[in-house]
Write a protein that binds this DNA or RNA. Sequence first.
DNA 1: ATGCAGGGACGAT
DNA 2: ATCGTCCCTGCA
Length: 287
Amino acid sequence: MRPLLSHFDAETSVNSGQSFLWEKKGDAWYGVHADTIIKFYKRDGGFAFETFPENRGIEREMFRLDDDMESIAAEIGRDPLVQKLALQYPGLRLMRQDPSQCIISFVCASNTNIPMIRRMLGTLSRKYGEKITADGMQFHAFPSARALDRATEAELRACGLGYRAKAIKSATKAIATGALDLDQLKKASYDEAKEELLKIYGIGNKIADCILLFSLEKLDSFPIDVWIARALLGHYGWLAGRKMSEKLTERQYEDVSAAARKYFGRYAGYAQQFLYYHMRQDAGKKW
DNA sequence: ATGCAGGGACGAT
DNA sequence: ATCGTCCCTGCA
């Protein structure tokens, strides 16, 4: 185990609200990553990984184990609070999600809570995802955009999506037709990629920023949800400004997010994740 | 038991 | 720029 990774904690990372389809069975965690099930468990003071079907080494990609956490921590640690949190939660990492899965997941996330998001995605997976067997148990791959796009809005509603069904349809269509070119978005700048995402019905500022951060390599993205808004109000008054509240207008979102990105720097998204995790911990949330 | 919150976005004023 | 509304569920 390389010393740089010695503090990495897969369990904390998968339970930090950035990724949804994980469940613990016995001593092991099983997660859905597009077409593969990834399993991990503690071993020798670190973590061992297995994938179904076999996809060796995918954990480096998924958990961003190639990121240079020392320079990232040095960069975002210029802020005293984030510095403290990086030391307090040394195992927390951003994850690199599959873009299609990430888009569909966060479109489901609007105006609801994490348990509900998990329920919606679980139902979609069981209904539209391919079966995968792992350790004698049955799992489901995350449904492809194409498979979801074949369903009607009413059928998606029946999965407990509510009014989000319409937004899911617009997103799956954009992905399935190639109108949204995911590989291209990875190469594009933050602004260019965000502009493309915002064209899709159901994707606004916050959800676009989550997609950019968690699946499109935009580590400078700084999503602001109610929890981050609370953190900004409580600890970063000069960024929040006097008129900000927990609910941001579109204009406020843009101004405050831009200010935060400038303040925290090119890894602002990492700072955001430490703050988010801390606010949730502090509130005693159990995801 | 009615109200409200929960990783928001959209359309009408 | 504000404001009501959207489907659903758990919890006070």
